[in-house]
Nucleic acid binder design. Structure first.
Lengths: 194, 194
DNA sequence: TGTACATCAGTGAACGCGCGTTCACTGATGTAC
DNA sequence: TGTACATCAGTGAACGCGCGTTCACTGATGTAC
């Protein structure tokens, strides 16, 4: 049966929300339309009233996840003063066991970057834009005078964050996993202060 | 028809070789048994004479890819003297556009780390062991006196390498992609020399 | 404000397809004598 | 060394299953009057 315009919009939001989480958890290939719709409290047939295809959902859900990630970073960073403390807060949160164990609610770059590199179409551009936004937030917290130097180091810092999370999630040994997170955090803290 | 013992062993090697490459390129879910066997010059039916299941192949192909990766690193590093030059060589190779564009022949951690974190079973242990081996090779090139400090920084350095490769592959903008690789390389070079 | 009706969001069965896996069969291998 | 035969690697059809997508249908919505 038809639903109100508001309900339709709510359903769409719910599908995007659920999809952005399940994609991050299980990968683009690891979760199907039917399960996403079920998780959103709907049946799979109605999916195509909201999205043109799974690829369309992949792009839009990724965009949403990246935007929410940037908003989350903003909350952690606050006004960004003092910068070293704000950067330390970001690193501590990002390189935590909690973040490692909650991929569905966590960083989209770390969770879906590899999946995206295997994808063709709109998602790859969406990812580049999402990545740029996060890199800029890191750059704003770095001490270098020159804008180019800040950006260069922001890219390196973010790479280390993403790589550490990917590695910490891949290994099965909890001691090694924690060691990876700690090593990356301490390495970046030491530099962030300099 | 039956084949000689040597041919059987060759076929097994060829399946592993092809699988280790195709998995890295397309992910564990992105390539099927039939296509792997076809790429190895065989038909899919014979697969189960060689491996118990796809999961079994995933584990064994990953192990092979990780071992070959370690061997490749050894060739790049050489005798490891002088250490800063050896580390610089490793970074230059790892963070090259060639490596970025050849995921099927490249680093298994960067290509399949995220896939592995979604997997359960033997692969995750295989990955932890493979990762340990690579980290040790980096640690041996670092200047820190204390073993623990070398290991800590080796983990951080490797995280940055992996993250940079993942990010460089995910974005569609070739300028940004190259920028990521360069930023990570210069960041690590500066520290490696210190 | 009330009524008639076109619209369309949602349902669930059905579609074709590709997947991992199984199976009967083939015929070369390699062993027993 | 030669022969008979059990073994088994490889083939290709077939299996059940889950996937993305389509479709006829339902009935509440929201618009035209």
């Amino acid at each position: 049966m038809k639903v109100t315009r508001e309900q339709f919009a709510e359903h769409r939001e719910r599908i995007l929300e659920v999809a952005s989480s399940l994609f991050r958890e299980k990968g683009f290939d690891g979760i199907g339309i039917a399960d996403i719709m079920k998780a959103a409290g709907l049946t799979h047939g109605g999916f195509y009233r909201h999205f043109a295809s799974k690829d369309d959902l992949i792009d839009q859900a990724s965009r949403r996840a990246l935007l929410q990630g940037a908003a989350h970073w903003e909350r952690i960073i606050g006004d960004g003063n003092p910068a070293p403390a704000a950067l330390a807060r970001l690193l501590q949160t990002y390189l935590s066991e909690a973040h490692r164990d909650a991929s569905g609610k966590g960083c989209t770059i770390a969770a879906l970057g590899v999946d995206t590199s295997r994808q063709q179409g709109a998602v790859r551009k969406t990812f580049a834009q999402g990545l740029e936004a996060l890199v800029e937030k890191i750059a704003a917290l770095l001490p270098e005078r020159a804008r180019a130097a800040r950006r260069r180091r922001a890219l390196a810092v973010f790479a280390q964050m993403v790589g550490a999370l990917v590695m910490a999630r891949a290994v099965d040994d909890p001691v090694l996993s924690k060691e990876i997170l700690t090593a990356a955090a301490s390495g970046l803290d030491a530099r962030g202060a300099g």
